[in-house]
Design a protein around this nucleic acid. Structure first.
Lengths: 103, 103
DNA sequence: TCTATAGTTCTATTATATTCGAACAATGAT
DNA sequence: ATCATTGTTCGAATATAATAGAACTATAGA
């Protein structure tokens, strides 16, 4: 079962995270993952956009180090890399999530 | 003395802030302003780029609500809108500044 | 093996951003 | 008035990103 490659946390730049979160669709994906607090498939995160568009956004979230995707069968299980990011950039992601949680 | 218009804090979207901070040049401007903790002219913030490029980045920082620019004579005095942004998005900007302060 | 499912990758189109020289505007000083 | 200073705006080139249909890959199940 071939898995997707992710950046190690030390490869993650702050500007990568900012860039990934600058898109409303991606911010919503991240918010939904945080609210759920569990792994979710791409299909579960339905924002009324074509698969290819969603896949594009997931790819950017992964390359920014925000999301980890594990392949399980035909499904891709996505989760936030919250702890790792908090370790490297304390408070950043949590503050963003606190802000999006209100709306 | 005609002043530049800025968005009110309630007009500032989180994605605007993320977008503005996603550019390394702009993140550096914001970091320098925070470190200085005072108003700075555009000229003081010398990142070895042409005036027009710097002006462009300041414009985006202003439109994102991150920077306030007051015209004083021929100089444009820039400052971070830290308190306002902290009020609306608690922890976000401070966490980013804490991250950039280390490097 | 055939089929369905989940998601990626390819490709093209369109939209946005970045960069920076040159021209411009506003102020202050001589 | 003229000139220097500070920064903006314009314009055009180049680069990067978003969008989405179509083809493709990998796995699971019948």
């Amino acid at each position: 079962m071939r898995q997707i490659k992710h950046p190690t946390i030390d490869q993650v730049e702050l500007t990568d995270i900012m860039y990934a979160l600058a898109d409303p669709t991606r911010l919503e994906i991240v918010t939904l993952l945080a609210k759920a607090g569990r792994k979710m498939t791409c299909g579960e995160i339905d924002l009324n956009r074509p698969k290819s568009s969603m896949s594009h956004h997931f790819k950017i979230l992964r390359s920014a180090g925000l999301v980890e995707t594990l392949i399980e069968g035909t499904e891709h299980m996505n989760s936030l890399r919250l702890e790792e990011i908090e370790q490297k950039y304390p408070g950043v992601l949590n503050a963003v999530l606190k802000a999006t949680a209100k709306s």
